[in-house]
Structures are given as C-alpha cells and as structure tokens.
Amino acid sequence: MSSAARTPLSDLTVVQALVSDVRVQPLLRELGDEYSTRYGRDAHAELARYPDEEFTAPHGGVLLLLLEGGEPVAGGAFRRYDATTAELKRIWTHSAHRRRGLARRVVAELEREAAARGYRRIHLTTGPRQPEARGLYLATGYTPLFDTQADPETIGPLPFEKHVPVATRTGKATDL
C-alpha cells in the first residue's frame, strides 16, 4: 500500500478485542514469527501463555486493535500488574504498516484506558533485541529502569515505567 493511499491516524478505528478474537491472530502470528527470528527460539508459546481473562475485567486489562478498513494494522494490550500498575504487553504494528506512528497511537490509547481504569503507573519490559521498541518507549516518555549505556544483551529484558495521571470523570458526554 503506498503512503498516499494510507488512512490518516485519526480515521483508524480503535476496538477492544479478546485474545481469542480472529482479528488478533495476525498480531500474535507475526509477532511470534518476529520474536522467533530475533531470539532464535520459538516464541509462539510465550505469546499464547496469557488467557483472555488477563486482558478483561475484573482484572482491569484490555486488548486494543487499530483497524484500517476493518483489518488490524496495529494493536497492544495491558494487564493488571498490581493494584495501581498496568503492564503493557504485545505492542505490535503489522510489517506492511510500520513507520506511520501506529505504535505511538496504540501506546497512547492503552495509557488513556489504563488511566480511565484508575491505574497510576504503567510498567513494561521489552527484549534486548528490539531496538525499535526501546526507542518507542523512550520517545513516549517511559523511564528506563536499567542502565541505558550498558549492552542490552547483558541486561536481559529491559524494564520501563511511566506514571500516568488518573483520568477524572466529569459526567459529561465526552467521558463516554
């Protein structure tokens, strides 16, 4: 798809989905393939280890997809880490749709939803062989909880955090 034909970010549809939703399968399949290539081991089982319940109420999580023309182009999720902290998981952009700011949009949507559910902090980890993810989190205001000067391969999973203001409900239609 040429960049001239791409939908503006404001025209993408944001939907909540379950892990078992057929629209989530391209996300998990491509993400598993990419992780398997980068880390030299089958990552598909790791991606399947969290059931739907981890990303739905009452646990406080959510899985969001960005749809373009009804097809998933990006997505991500959060789950309850502790009473005040959400943990971002599975931030993904379809390989044919990268370099459009979609991952930033996913992260912003997840942060908004986490704040609306009362979470005050967001935690996440990314792998040492995912420099794009590391760059995304640094660019979107996450604080690295590791020495950024160290070789990522010597650290293992790279933890980040961000404190978010809790959304306040005004009772207006814009809150819905």
Rank of each mutant, 00 (worst) to 15 (best):
P152Y: 00
P131R: 08
K162P: 14
P131D: 11
G156S: 04
H123R: 15
F160G: 04
L124G: 15
Y137W: 07
I155A: 02
P144K: 03
A133Y: 06
A116L: 12
F146Q: 09
T143H: 07
A116R: 14
G118S: 10
A116N: 09
E161P: 00
Y137G: 08
L124C: 15
T125Y: 04
H123T: 11
A133D: 10
L124R: 15
P128M: 05
I155M: 02
T125S: 08
T125I: 14
P131C: 09
G127R: 10
G156R: 03
R134F: 00
H123I: 13
L136A: 02
H163P: 09
H123C: 12
P159Y: 03
T148L: 01
T125K: 12
A133Q: 06
T126V: 12
A133K: 05
R121A: 13
H163L: 13
D151H: 07
A139E: 01
R121K: 15
T143D: 12
G118E: 08
T154P: 04
G141D: 08
P159V: 07
R129N: 14
R117N: 04
L158C: 00
D151K: 02
D147S: 02
G118C: 07
T154E: 14
T126Y: 13
P152K: 04
I122F: 03
A116D: 09
Q130N: 12
A139D: 01
P152H: 02
Y137I: 00
T140M: 07
A133N: 10
Y142I: 00
D151A: 04
G141M: 06
P159C: 04
G127C: 12
P131Y: 13
T125N: 14
R117V: 04
T140V: 08
Y119I: 05
Y119D: 11
A133H: 06
L124Q: 14
Q130Y: 11
R134T: 13
F160I: 06
A116V: 04
Y137L: 05
